[in-house]
Write a protein that binds this DNA or RNA. Structure first.
Length: 402
DNA sequence: CATTGCGCACATA
DNA sequence: TATGTGCGCAATG
């Protein structure tokens, strides 16, 4: 944050990668920024996130993987094609337009609805420079990804295999019930995958811990077939009532939010929360606050007790977790992961403003890629903690709801 | 070894 | 079809 240079660096990096015909993915961007400017990948990721929120950078899903675009350039090209397509008749303008374009793009642009964006949701918000519009667009972008992620959820366990049928079923599957879904999927399609998600392209994936796993070819199809909203809604519809209600209960989400899954959630949350907390309190303080609010003096020494025991100050029963989870603040989440041995990764949760509710909504892909943490810890975190917490929560609630 | 350049196939409009 | 994108590989430092 802060460093305005970052913007430049990152945009520059994206441009470089693009001109090199290399996919500007998180991994490459981070690496290049690091190499060129010596900044930490983590930091780069954060800045990237910010740029995405600033619409300076577009996060898109292209050919089944995440990629980043320099919004400015995208706009330009987009504009061009728009003109070309739209005003095919007036063929004249081409050369002159290109020059005028750039300027025109700045105000008239639809900020950036690159192909990918469109595919996300035919850029339904043609409104010009409305920030909110931008927001939407961006969401749709990510939504596009989500669609792939949904299934990725499923296919994640069966990584690179792009079994159309599996994919299809995966699509409809709600991303929200990772465990079940994942297990089901895992069980049926390919047993070999039992292991981790990264089988697909071990090297790459591993390297790209921050980025890669989204590989789902049908994404594109689906996007095309149904507007993101639909896509998004589907999962919502299928999604466990527990979760939804959980969400709805407190922070009544905006229409789209349900649709939000991994990425959207992230960027969304981050977007909205960032400001509140951005400057604000140290997570530790927050944690304290929380405790004091809950006002249960913990006699436990262990931090672990803290989470489950946030309220109870005791053992951490599934029950408690299930309930508490909804009330966990970002700080709680952070301290939880810190306490279970992932202090470094815990920071990522903080950065991404993951509170209890968000945690519940997290999918494997979010943990693996959305937090920009190393694949190893990410896997552990997901498998041993996120998943477990979610499971206990949902078990708890499924009882309630059914 | 990492980085860069680029042909060519693919995706999208 | 036109155009953007990025994989995969060779060249380079």
């Amino acid at each position: 944050m802060s460093e305005p240079r970052y913007r430049e660096w990152i945009l520059d990096t994206i441009d470089s990668l693009r001109s090199r015909k290399a996919r500007p993915d998180l991994e490459r961007i981070c690496r290049m920024v690091r190499r060129r400017h010596g900044s930490e990948p983590d930091q780069t990721c954060l800045e990237l996130e910010r740029l995405i929120q600033d619409h300076a950078v577009l996060k898109v899903n292209y050919k089944g993987s995440v990629s980043y675009r320099n919004a400015a350039k995208v706009q330009r090209s987009r504009r061009r094609s728009e003109q070309a397509a739209g005003k095919k008749s007036s063929s004249s303008s081409s050369s002159s337009s290109s020059s005028s374009c750039s300027s025109a793009a700045s105000n008239n642009n639809k900020r950036a609805s690159p192909a990918e964006l469109n595919n996300g949701d035919s850029a339904q918000g043609p409104a010009d420079d409305d920030p909110m519009e931008d927001m939407e667009d961006e969401l749709s972008t990510t939504a596009g990804m989500d669609s792939s992620m949904d299934e990725e959820e499923a296919s994640l366990d069966a990584p690179c295999m792009q079994i159309p049928s599996a994919a299809d079923s995966g699509i409809s599957l709600s991303p929200v019930i990772p465990d079940v879904e994942a297990e089901v999927t895992r069980a049926s399609p390919m047993p070999s995958k039992s292991g981790s998600s990264c089988q697909s392209t071990p090297e790459k994936e591993r390297g790209a811990a921050g980025v890669s796993p989204e590989r789902t070819q049908p994404a594109a199809q689906r996007d095309t077939v149904s507007p993101v909203l639909d896509m998004a809604l589907q999962p919502a519809a299928v999604c466990p009532s527990a979760q939804r209600s959980a969400l709805t209960r407190e922070e009544e989400p905006r229409a789209g939010e349900n649709a939000l899954t991994p990425d959207q959630l992230l960027s969304n949350c981050t977007a909205s929360l960032q400001q509140d907390e951005a400057v604000g309190s140290d997570h530790l303080e927050e944690g304290k606050k929380c405790n004091s609010v809950d006002d249960i003096p913990l006699t436990q020494g262990t931090e672990t007790a803290k989470n489950g025991g946030m309220k109870r100050g005791g053992l951490f029963k599934a029950d408690d977790v299930a309930q508490d989870l909804l009330q966990w603040s970002v700080a709680d989440v952070v301290s939880y992961f810190t306490s279970v041995g992932f202090p470094e990764q815990a920071m990522a949760f903080r950065m991404q403003e993951i509170d209890g509710k968000s945690l519940l909504l997290m999918q494997r892909s979010d943990v693996l890629t959305g937090l920009s943490i190393r694949l190893g810890p990410a896997l552990k975190i997901y498998e041993h903690h996120v998943k477990v917490l979610q499971r206990s929560h949902f078990q708890e609630h499924s009882g309630v709801f059914s």
